[in-house]
């Protein structure tokens, strides 16, 4: 499963595009505050002025520099996706491996819980929580992770069930390896490629959710976000703000979602042997 993985991935144009986008956004995320010419909360400039040499993308209705806003917004959306996806991955792998390995009542309860969560529309719970309590985005990211681990958990569980029968796991058991040892040394490393797919798919979902929540006005308005920028700019749709105010956040959001989509699709194609026929796969 692992031997040819990196080799095959390196030849896949979708994976390469995804990686280039990832590098680009990592750079924006970490260098953003240094690249931004102004503070995105500084409201000193002439509202609604068009792009100029000082304000690359002009100024918004509140007198804030749009380019600086954009850098911070990308950073926030990116972080939200990473926090939510990594927590969901952690929960999914932990629960899936435990349920698959121990079986019995624990398995039954955990998988029934996963079924219930799969059927519940996550966005609705997020909207309710965000509207009632106005929590910080990090809390929302964690709640989202708590709602979207089941797809990962189920995959990991079924993979654990089949790995349980494999020779090296049985050998490890024979030599007296305990559950903790086998799970941490054999099961969890063995399933590594599956984590990447799960992570990319969940990051996609989380970033999309963050943009939608911000767009609907459910996140803290002082926190810069791509969805919120689009929502504000859309209120001035009849004016000449399309090219410098509305399209930049749209482009960034699309590129962010494309980045994770491409990674997920190419990883799925390479990792899933049944799909190794050629060309891209699917997403949940």
């Amino acid at each position: 499963m692992h031997v040819n993985l990196s080799h095959m991935l390196r030849r896949d144009p979708w994976f390469l595009t995804g990686m280039i986008l990832t590098l680009f956004f990592l750079m924006v995320t970490f260098l953003g505050p240094f690249l931004a010419p102004f503070s995105p909360w500084n409201m000193d400039f002439v509202p609604l002025s068009p792009p100029s040499s000082t304000h690359l993308l002009g100024v918004n209705d509140g007198g804030q520099d749009i380019f600086s806003e954009l850098l911070y917004a990308v950073r926030n959306t990116f972080f939200f996706g990473m926090i939510s996806a990594s927590t969901a991955l952690f929960l999914g792998v932990l629960i899936g491996a435990l349920a698959g390995w121990f079986g019995g009542v624990a398995d039954l309860i955990l998988m029934r819980l996963a079924d219930v969560l799969l059927a519940t529309p996550a966005i609705m719970i997020l909207i309710l929580v965000a509207a009632l309590f106005r929590p910080s985005p990090h809390i929302l990211a964690l709640i989202l992770a708590g709602l979207m681990w089941p797809t990962i958990g189920k995959t990991i569980r079924s993979q654990t069930l089949s790995l349980k029968q494999s020779l090296h796991v049985r050998a490890a058991r024979q030599m007296g390896g305990g559950s903790a040892y086998v799970i941490s040394r054999h099961l969890i490393p063995e399933m590594f490629p599956l984590y990447l797919i799960g992570f990319a798919a969940k990051a996609r979902m989380a970033m999309f959710m963050e943009a939608a929540l911000a767009f609907l006005g459910l996140l803290d308005p002082s926190r810069k976000s791509l969805g919120m920028m689009i929502s504000y700019a859309l209120q001035y749709y009849y004016m000449d703000i399309w090219w410098h105010w509305l399209f930049p956040p749209i482009l960034c959001l699309s590129l962010l979602i494309m980045m994770v989509t491409f990674l997920a699709i190419s990883l799925e194609k390479v990792v899933d042997p049944r799909l190794r026929v050629n060309l891209p796969g699917r997403l949940s």
């Binding site: 979708w14 939608a212 699309s254 979602i257 494309m258 980045m259 989509t261 491409f262 891209p280």
Partner: peptide, 11 residues
């Protein structure tokens, strides 16, 4: 289609 799949509804 893969590219289209990467463009969210907002955009």
């Amino acid at each position: 289609m893969t590219v289209l799949e990467g463009i969210p509804e907002i955009c």
